[in-house]
């Protein structure tokens, strides 16, 4: 659990530079086109590996940073049942982080290195977690909307061409849909509750709706990576298609709650059956991604603090493991 062995595998991953070999590339693409899963020891283009490491690690970081806004309400959950549900959820998110770091490690980069990038401020994570959880209703809104959007994004990833990532996503998606239902149930309780509770629910929807739509990333017109990732079957459905699917599923759910979406342009297109939404404020999206969201600095500071304050604990565990290994070796040599 505390071994550092994977750090040395970095050279391995960088090694044989066959990326330029057109025959190998063609054979690789043919495998993808046949829907074969690519496994850790298979040859793969450097770009494919890089893209996956970036995407999987960003996803892992998002799970870990995402524990902070929700963890913010564990000690204040209003009933024992809600406290248990929230604890279990945040624990699940930590587990998702673990599987995803493990999936990234199969590509030859260690968790320590990836976490180092996060702490150095060089890695990205989902910007949604740079918004604060102000009230208890935010816990419902996050489950309903943020986990809901995550599911839309992640279900297609269960068919991603890279085997370890696809398999991790299957398990994660099952748990995310559980979180989504629990979040919605929390919102329903508030929406059917006292006038204050209903106001709290509406206020949370007002704050979380647009950032949730932004979770799908820039519009297809402006997205940089889409076409190569589509060919490699890393990203199988476009940002805008996923976003539309999310809106179509979520709007009726919100109406059932008796809540109003903070979008005057939101309208059902009778012809297509789709809910059309108003323009997304991409300036806000870009600003938060660039680091100027309300909580970017706080989130990173919290991760850094935990890491720094835990250093002596990790050192102790390593020293203890070394002592025990040494003792075992000495005993074996007798």
């Amino acid at each position: 659990m505390y071994t550092q062995g994977l750090d040395q595998r970095g050279d391995n991953a960088a090694a044989p530079a066959r990326a330029d070999d057109p025959a190998a590339l063609a054979a690789f693409q043919a495998r993808i086109d046949r829907e074969e899963k690519i496994e850790p020891n298979d040859w793969m283009p450097q770009g494919y590996r890089r893209t996956l490491v970036r995407q999987i690690s960003q996803h892992a970081h998002s799970e870990i940073v995402g524990m902070l806004p929700e963890g913010n309400w564990i000690t204040r959950a209003p009933s024992l049942r809600r406290k248990m549900i929230l604890l279990a959820k945040v624990q699940d998110e930590g587990g998702h982080g673990l599987y995803l770091y493990s999936a990234a490690e199969t590509l030859g980069v260690s968790r320590a290195e990836l976490v180092g990038q996060l702490l150095a401020g060089k890695a990205k994570y989902s910007s949604i977690f740079n918004y604060p959880t102000l009230t208890w209703a935010d816990i419902g809104a996050i489950g309903w909307l943020v986990d809901g959007a995550a599911i839309m994004n992640q279900v297609p990833l269960c068919r991603c061409s890279y085997g370890p990532y696809a398999r991790a996503m299957i398990r994660i998606c099952r748990e995310e849909s559980f979180h989504q239902r629990q979040g919605y149930e929390l919102m329903l309780k508030l929406a059917r509750g006292t006038p204050d509770q209903k106001r709290m629910a509406q206020n949370a929807l007002d704050r979380w709706w647009w950032p949730s739509l932004m979770m799908f990333g820039p519009s297809d017109r402006d997205s940089v990576h889409s076409s190569q990732n589509a060919a490699w079957k890393i990203k199988r459905v476009s940002n805008d298609e996923l976003r539309q699917k999310f809106v179509d599923v979520t709007v009726p759910q919100g109406h059932f709650l008796g809540l109003t979406f903070p979008d005057p342009d939101l309208k059902l297109d009778e012809g297509t059956g789709h809910w059309n939404h108003g323009p997304i404020d991409w300036a806000e999206f870009n600003r938060v991604v660039a680091g100027d969201g309300q909580c970017n600095r706080d989130r990173l500071a919290a991760r850094r603090k935990a890491h720094a304050e835990g250093a002596w604990v990790r050192e102790a565990a390593a020293a203890f493991a070394a002592k025990r290994a040494h003792a075992r070796a000495a005993k074996a040599a007798e």
Partner: peptide, 18 residues
């Protein structure tokens, strides 16, 4: 539960939450 998200290792975040 106050540790959740602030533990020395991810494994401990999970173990302490449990």
């Amino acid at each position: 539960s106050e540790w959740c998200g602030h533990a020395p290792e991810l494994e401990e975040d999970i173990a302490l939450a449990n």
